[in-house]
Structures are given as C-alpha cells and as structure tokens.
Design a protein around this nucleic acid. Sequence first.
DNA 1: ACCCGTGTTCGCTG
DNA 2: TCAGCGAACACGGG
Length: 290
Amino acid sequence: MPELPEVEVAARNLARWAVGRRVRAARAEAGAKRILRPGSPAALRGLAGARVSGVRRVGKNLMLTLDGRSGPIGVWSHLGMTGKWLRRGASDPAPRFSRVELDLDDGSHLHYADMRLFGRFRLVPRAKFDDVAELAALGRDPLNDGIDVPGLGTRLARLKLPIKVAIMDQRILPGVGNIQASEALFRAGIDPRRPAKSLKPAEVRALARGVMTSIRYTLRQFGKTGADGGRTDIEYVEEAGERANPFLVYGRAGAPCPGGKHRAKRTGTGTVTRIVQAGRATFFCAACQH
DNA sequence: ACCCGTGTTCGCTG
DNA sequence: TCAGCGAACACGGG
C-alpha cells in the first residue's frame, strides 16, 4: 500500500538491511519483465559484487546507490500499487509474488514482491538519477525537505482542476497519493472538489499542515508492532493482521464524521461521503469541509 | 459474476 | 496545445 509513509518505511528497512552489504547475486522471476522495462533480467547480473552504499527516497520513489567494480550503479525502485520489499533468511522460501531477489553477503535475501506488476525496478547507469525523466520531474519531498508553502500556493493558483486531484500530482506534492490526499484535505477542512486556484493563502497553509500531519500520523501507525507480536521490524499496516483502518475518513463512507481536533468546523452533523474524482475514490465530510 | 483497488501512462475528445 | 476522461495494465479480495 505504498504512498509516501509506506515508501519511507521501505527506505528505512532497506537502509538497515542492505547499506554496507555486498550483493552476491541478483535475479528476476520470469514474470518480472514488465517491472524491469526497458531493462532485462540478464542485466541484473551487473549488480553481482556491488556494495550498497545508500538508500534515498523522494516521494514514492526509492533510489539505491551501489559501488560496483566499474563505478556506481543506481537502482530506481517504485512500488506501484502492490509492491513491497521483504527480507528473508538464507533458507527461507521466497515470498509470494517475489519478482526480484538480491542475495546479500550476510546470507539474507531481499525480495521485491509485487502482485499486480505495476512497480518498477530499473538499473540507472552510473547512478545518474537525474537522467531518469520520471525522477527529474518530481518536486521537493514533503518529509525530507518540508513544504514550500508560498511555492505551493503559486503552483495551485494556476490550476483549475479539483484540489484533491492537484495535490496528487507528483510534480506538486511528491508522495501524496489517494489516501493522503483525502486525509490531508479533511484535516485542513477543505472541500476536495474546489478548484485548486480558489484556495486562499490561509487555506494553502492549512493544507500544507494537513499533509504533514497526515504523513507523520500514518508513519507512526506503521511503526507499531504487528498483531503477531514480538516483531521489531517496521511493518506495513496491512501485515499487522486484524488492525482496524487507522484513517480518519479514507475507506469510511457512511461513518459519522470523526470530528474532534481534526474537524475544522464543529457542525456535529457530518457523515463521511464517498465520491469519485478523476476515476479515484475521495472521502470527505461535506459538513465540515468547505 | 460483478465491483473495487494505497499508481501511472496512454490515447481520445473538445 | 492543453485540460479532462476513461481505459489499460494484472491480479486478488469482498
């Protein structure tokens, strides 16, 4: 379930698991062709012998840097809809839907698993990530760099499209996806249907706060121990078992508005509504988002 | 069987 | 040229 918070968890996990380690072997499952494009499974052999030197995240993108025999090698990893990075012991079976596997020199195996194959695993020559068009187009990362509120206001002021759709544009707020967009607008008390250009400066400030608060809140949820207990690794929410939906409005159509400190205006009458914008579900409370 | 899905891209239309 | 849609991708779950 990768938006910025989940990808941040993946980045922290990968840093802990892999930085400083050498890759013994790398391989891809036959069905991984789509994820590797325009590369090939055979090209992964170029990773053998390389040492992982760093992991970075911008928005929903992971960038691994490795030191190979003939210079730096980059890996651009995007989790798509269903991608995740998992760690297994030397003799453990591969997880379901494992598409790419990296064997490290401590005996561990890192798996990129992705049921729906919407993700990416692309080698970047000489680790020149700026040469990748998809990465060069990204704006500044909210969590790493903070939000430039006046800059955000300027961008939004040119756009007629609904604010919910605008903030999911990765050039504007990298890492914000369908959940974080609904959650941030709820926290800010802004109606997701409003044209982006209609937001006043105070509302842009509230939105920026809502985005940051929602991202940090979601990140805390992922840090919690899973329902199987005893695990110290950071886990994805969905792997925590029976835990309830942690979000304020996302996935809560028909529920009473959660209100409290999150509600911008205390009407006390709201119900969470589901609408569709640009083909994606949006959840909001019409009574307190204006 | 039908609908839905935490992402992105492509093609069509006005 | 561009904003705005819908479809497509691929697969499982409710």
